[in-house]
Design a protein around this nucleic acid. Structure first.
Lengths: 223, 223
DNA sequence: TAGATTGTTAATCGATTAACAATC
DNA sequence: TAGATTGTTAATCGATTAACAATC
């Protein structure tokens, strides 16, 4: 098993999204060129990415949309259910629990945990809320594989330790900080600041280049 | 003005986070080696990244933590306030409005918009909620630069068009779909599925390699 | 068949890492 | 001063893109 390049893993859900739309519109066959155009990519890159999923195309015909969707889903293991715990039932946590689409990708929240006594014992989107000390025993008993962290920065490491104690395999971390865990635990840090930094910096650079363009046009008009 | 490589832009907020923690602990000077170790990066890469911000270090001494923080903040233009509109005041939208930290990065929500009549006229975290048709005129009058999309997929393009009509400069899109806008508008797509795909695929690959490791150990014991 | 598209090898590009002189 | 660290040039690595034979 080759390890998959990170950029390829991150592009696959985009292909999936586009292919689902195509299927809805009755498209049955599709070429790498069409996919590439739709997502502003190179067609060779699309073929290389799809090759990782093991799907085969036919010269002249292209790929079958249904096969492609199935291949991507299986490659990402989104066809098998994965039970998950959510730690931190605040605004962001509630958003995660209420986002039905995650279930399409196999992610199934079976319990949430919070320190707020008013929330303990209640449910958010049918998911029951418990105190954090229940995490290790419940995780083992229910064979939960994924922990989603939507806690404040200061609570992230404690929550991680409890999840690790419960034998969790992966942590999807939305807390604005890093967490430490044994190396066999997969940690995916999802930092909003990363994309905000890219957004604000690009704004400055676009402004600058538009300005330069405007000035060079003035220059051109004068001569 | 060189354009900044995307990976550099995305690493800068991580440096910032670490440096702020260091400053809190009374650290005044720091070397690229220390930063690199803390973030599991190469020290040359750290120096190259920091060079983009224009900050200068001293051989033997390293960098002043305060200067570094200031340089990164200014490079990302996080020292100047940017007024923003939030479109879609659901769970995720409320999470964004309630997340005070964004203001530290210059992002200031001045109004939110939703189609739910029960929400119109009310406030979430002191941010007033309006109907979507108010977007263009209000955006122009208030000189709002950023639109944050936390709407369902089907509403994303309509919201984008209204923001563009209002002369917005950048769109931070959390809707699970792509949106089209004129090329001078900066669009930063923030897709949760990207990081979920990376998470689930890594889980399989780690599992596989751990298993292989276990098997090769058994093999070793037998011979 | 003729032509479009795949699968794959080779070339290019850009980012990361290594090496090291300059310097505090 | 001696030694650590910067700033920068060169080497490496990996991902993207180009080219093209195979093939349906």
């Amino acid at each position: 098993m080759r390890i998959t390049p990170e950029p390829t893993m991150r592009r696959l859900p985009h292909y999936l999204h586009f292919l689902k739309r195509q299927l809805e519109n009755g498209v049955e066959k599709i070429s790498s060129t069409i996919i590439a155009q739709a997502l502003s990519l190179d067609s060779t890159q699309v073929r290389k990415d799809l090759e990782y999923t093991g799907v085969k195309g036919k010269p002249k015909t292209g790929f079958f949309v249904k096969e492609l969707i199935q291949a991507i889903l299986e490659f990402l293991t989104w066809t098998t259910r994965r039970d998950a715990f959510l730690i931190g039932a605040g605004n962001l946590g509630s958003a995660m629990l209420g986002y039905n689409r995650f279930r399409e990708y196999g992610l199934n929240f079976v319990a949430a945990f919070d320190t707020d006594e008013n929330k303990i014992g209640s449910e958010i989107y049918k998911v029951p809320i418990f105190t954090l000390d229940k995490i290790p025993s419940m995780a083992r008993r229910m064979n939960v594989q994924v922990g989603v962290l939507t806690v404040p920065a200061h609570a992230a490491q404690t929550a991680t330790d409890l999840l690790v104690e419960g034998g969790i395999k992966a942590i999807w971390n939305f807390a604005p900080t890093y967490v430490k865990a044994p190396k066999e635990v997969v940690i995916e840090n999802h930092q909003f600041t990363e994309s905000l930094a890219a957004l604000t910096r690009k704004m400055v650079e676009v402004d600058f280049h538009l300005e330069k363009y405007r000035l060079s046009n003035l220059e051109g008009n004068r001569t």
